[in-house]
Design a protein around this nucleic acid. Structure first.
Length: 562
RNA sequence: GCGCCCGUAGCUCAGUUGGAUAGAGCGUUUGACUACGAAUCAAAAGGCCACGGGUUCGAAUCCUGUCGGGCGCACCA
């Protein structure tokens, strides 16, 4: 059993059901069905470790007061051999369960035994899940939104991996379509400018300095070879060079941010392989399309969308929607993913219904596709909103963020917030306050533990293969609180995976760090009675393991010194 | 106008399936280093959970209306 919280919940469920059935048999309770036992964790310590509201739920059908029912259930509970110390009835009819020492001992043993694998659970059963995230346009550098998407997608991927899924991280390269045209025209303009010609970057083109850089590099490589070439060939050569270079940079920047993809998927290959064309034909044959104004439309409204959209433009080119449908068919049908998660900025939310509709139209269960929308990042300088402009190409890039704020702080920051909350990112503040960033609080806890363990080793004390440790000696409040939090990691992973909420893990590890610091300030490890010291070594080492595992999951450094 | 997301302490934000006295960090105030790292800890102050109605034993959470903010509603992606 990987998840001790689940284990004790199962124990409670079983004993409660047994007790109710027993009471029914003895005529103490008169009910038809036993409600499902919902176990929750009370916020208040005075209400025990786990509690159920079963008696309150049963009150109506049993025609008895909740407290009376609770009494009957409680009397029938067999606590021997379980991890429950005692049960109390409180408030309107809650039954509060208190955990005993066995629970704490078992939790610590499990962490020690599992080590770097502690926290892993198997709710995924090896199901193939793909997480597609960032997928920034390869026409320029990545911005703060990509930084958020990267932190979110990568953390979610790790969590699903820990939860027992077979995870594929994927980056979709939009190397086809309109913006590539614009990219080519922009590069061409800069190239010709460098050759002394009086041309301008076209309307809606890319004005950033990076375009000028690419053009310069291209000029160095090929000189004026393309000056008088056929414009189409010229743009093709420029685009080919620019894309290659930009994609390399995307990879470099993302790697510096701690992200490594399993698959870089090129949109262009979908056109070349004929998959786009074939999926358009499939929709056509199924009768889900019609022609209007010389364009081919997809009847999305049949599948719950608000309006129909164009699949093939009047000029014969397929839209992004057509390639995206082909892409998702490729994910499900050709590559056989059981579950696909796309992480998109909230500005793309209108795209969700069309995609789900298309899945339905293709006979793919749309529930296998989850789109995680994250609200946008607004860049601030103090109280001022920093406008990012495509026209002027002025923006703060992911690379700037890594250089100025640091990978660890940035990833932690983005993963502290739920995807649903819009964030204001104050660059000045982030740099200025980086020393009191929460990430250091967690890293500091880790470094502190390593420091203690180092010194113990210097004292000649074995900290790794401790024998005959009596973990029951750990009964200070600070110790118990810490152990219980550590025991919760597998459950936390489970919930984070089910709710696709990486920020839970970040919050969790902050709690762990906080409880450790409290422990540190009230209990000593070195210099106490040897038996107690041994038990505490096990505790802090378990804490170290938990922090390390979670930071690894978030791809944040776990320093031994800082 | 229609759709999606949001509105919780001075600020930034948590709050899984509806639960008991709504939490944390920052900031403010007051304490704690002659013993393992003070990047830490302990304590205090701070709230009509935007507002009104409803559902029920019980609502920050679900439904509905209003107000305020963000984002969509292209033959761009």
């Amino acid at each position: 059993m990987d998840n001790i919280v689940q284990k004790v919940k199962t124990e409670i469920t079983k004993m409660v059901i047994n007790s109710i059935e027993e009471a029914k048999k003895n005529g103490l309770l008169n009910i038809e069905d036993i409600p499902s036992i919902e176990i929750e964790e009370p916020k208040e310590k005075q209400f025990g470790d786990l509690s159920i509201n079963t008696a309150m739920v049963m009150a109506k059908s049993a025609k008895m007061s909740p407290r009376k029912i609770a009494e009957i259930i409680k009397d029938g509970l067999k606590l021997e051999g379980t991890m429950i110390e005692k049960v109390e009835i409180a408030g309107p009819g809650f039954m509060n369960f208190y955990l005993n020492d066995d629970y704490n001992v078992e939790a610590l043993m499990l962490i020690k035994k599992k080590g770097i694998d502690y926290g892993r659970v198997n709710i995924g059963n090896g199901k193939k899940v793909q997480v597609e995230f960032v997928s920034a346009n390869p026409t320029g550098p990545m911005h703060m939104g990509n930084a958020r998407g990267g932190a979110l997608g990568d953390a979610l991927s790790s969590i699903l991996d820990y939860a027992g899924y077979d995870v594929t991280r994927e980056f979709y390269i939009n190397d086809a379509g309109n913006q590539i045209e614009k990219f080519g025209l922009s590069l061409e303009a800069r190239y010709l400018q460098l050759l002394g010609q009086d041309v301008e970057v076209p309307e809606g083109g890319y004005h950033g300095d990076d375009i000028i850089e690419r053009a310069k590099e291209f000029l160095e490589l090929y000189g004026d070879k393309y000056k008088d070439a056929d414009p189409e060939d010229r743009r093709k050569a420029l685009v080919q060079y620019g894309l290659k270079k930009n994609i390399e940079k995307l990879k470099d920047d993302l790697e510096a941010y701690g992200i490594e993809y399993d698959v870089w998927f090129s949109e262009n290959t979908l056109h070349e392989s004929g998959e786009v064309e074939s999926v358009i034909n499939e929709l056509k044959e199924k009768g889900y399309t019609y022609e209007k104004d010389e364009a081919l439309w997809f009847k999305e409204t049949l599948f719950g969308a608000e309006k129909d959209d164009v699949l093939v433009r009047a000029n014969g080119y397929p839209t992004y929607l057509a390639s995206d449908i082909a892409y998702h068919k490729n994910k499900f049908v050709k590559r056989g993913f059981d579950w696909v998660i796309d992480i998109w900025g909230a500005d793309h939310h209108g795209h969700v219904a069309p995609m789900k509709g298309a899945m339905k139209a293709l006979g793919i269960d749309p529930n296998k596709l989850d789109v995680l929308l994250m609200q946008l990042v607004r860049l601030m300088k103090g109280k001022e909103v920093v406008k990012m402009s495509k026209r002027t190409g002025k923006m703060v890039t992911l690379r700037d963020l890594i250089d100025e704020v640091g990978k660890d702080a940035a990833r932690f920051f983005f993963n502290m917030r739920s995807a649903d909350s819009a964030v204001d990112f104050d660059m000045d503040l982030a740099v200025e306050q980086s020393n009191e960033n929460p990430v250091f609080y967690v890293q500091y806890a880790h470094a502190r533990i390593c420091s203690i363990l180092r010194q113990l080793k210097d004292d000649g004390i074995n900290t790794e293969d401790l024998k005959d440790v009596d973990l029951r000696l750990l009964n200070e409040e600070a110790e118990i609180d810490l152990i219980k939090k550590l025991a919760y990691l597998p459950e936390e992973i489970t919930i984070a995976a089910k709710t696709m909420a990486p920020h839970r893990i970040t919050r969790y590890i902050l709690d762990v760090a906080s409880l450790f610091h409290t422990f540190y300030n009230s209990c000593r490890v070195r210099g106490v009675d040897e038996e107690l010291m041994k038990a505490r070594i096990v505790l802090i080492d378990a804490t170290r393991i938990v922090i390390k595992n979670v930071l690894d999951m978030l791809k944040i450094t776990a320093p031994e010194k800082m």
